[in-house]
């Protein structure tokens, strides 16, 4: 009996990668930390419900950062890109650690550190394509710097 192979790989070269999703995630983590820290009287049912929702969202966005950065690092960064940016491995590892810290706590500085590292990662990503980058202030709260390809 001839059994054929059905590939379930994700190396189909659609080659569509963009660190913007991870940047959006990191930005959201900081915003959610702000909203959590602004909450008053969490003994009220309304605020307790809101806190639950905000914490869940923070978890989700921090995990999205991990997923997207890991995918770009694992699927996109190959020999030539790693040769150009040999520090990408340690940066990605640090992002994984920082995102976990953001999941665990609500210290805004942890969120800002994550945002900085994800921006560094975005810089490496676009740099690997020999694209110029620029830093803009996100129009979305909390209005943090975001690295993007120069338009």
């Amino acid at each position: 009996m001839n059994i054929e192979i059905a590939k379930a790989h994700c190396d189909i070269p659609c080659k569509v990668y963009d660190p913007a999703i991870a940047q959006f995630g990191a930005l959201s983590v900081v915003r959610l930390m702000d909203l959590i820290n602004e909450l008053e009287d969490i003994t009220s049912v309304k605020n307790a419900a809101q806190l639950t929702r905000l914490v869940a969202q923070k978890e989700e966005h921090a995990q999205a950062v991990k997923n997207d950065v890991a995918t770009i690092w694992g699927d996109y960064f190959k020999g030539p890109q790693i040769e150009k940016y040999p520090d990408v491995h340690s940066l990605v590892h640090n992002i994984m650690q920082a995102a976990s810290k953001c999941k665990q706590g609500i210290d805004r500085n942890d969120g800002l550190a994550l945002m900085t590292m994800v921006n560094d990662f975005a810089g490496m990503f676009w740099g690997s394509k020999d694209m110029e980058i620029e830093t803009i202030v996100s129009p979305n709260l909390p209005n943090l710097d975001v690295v993007r390809p120069k338009s």
Binding site: M1, I3, E4, I5, A6, K7, A8, H9, C10
Partner: peptide, 22 residues
Amino acid sequence: FRIFKVSGESMKPNFKNDHFVL
């Protein structure tokens, strides 16, 4: 009808490497 052997991880957890599908 055809039978295929799955190769790869992208369909986990529902379809794992070496699963067979009809």
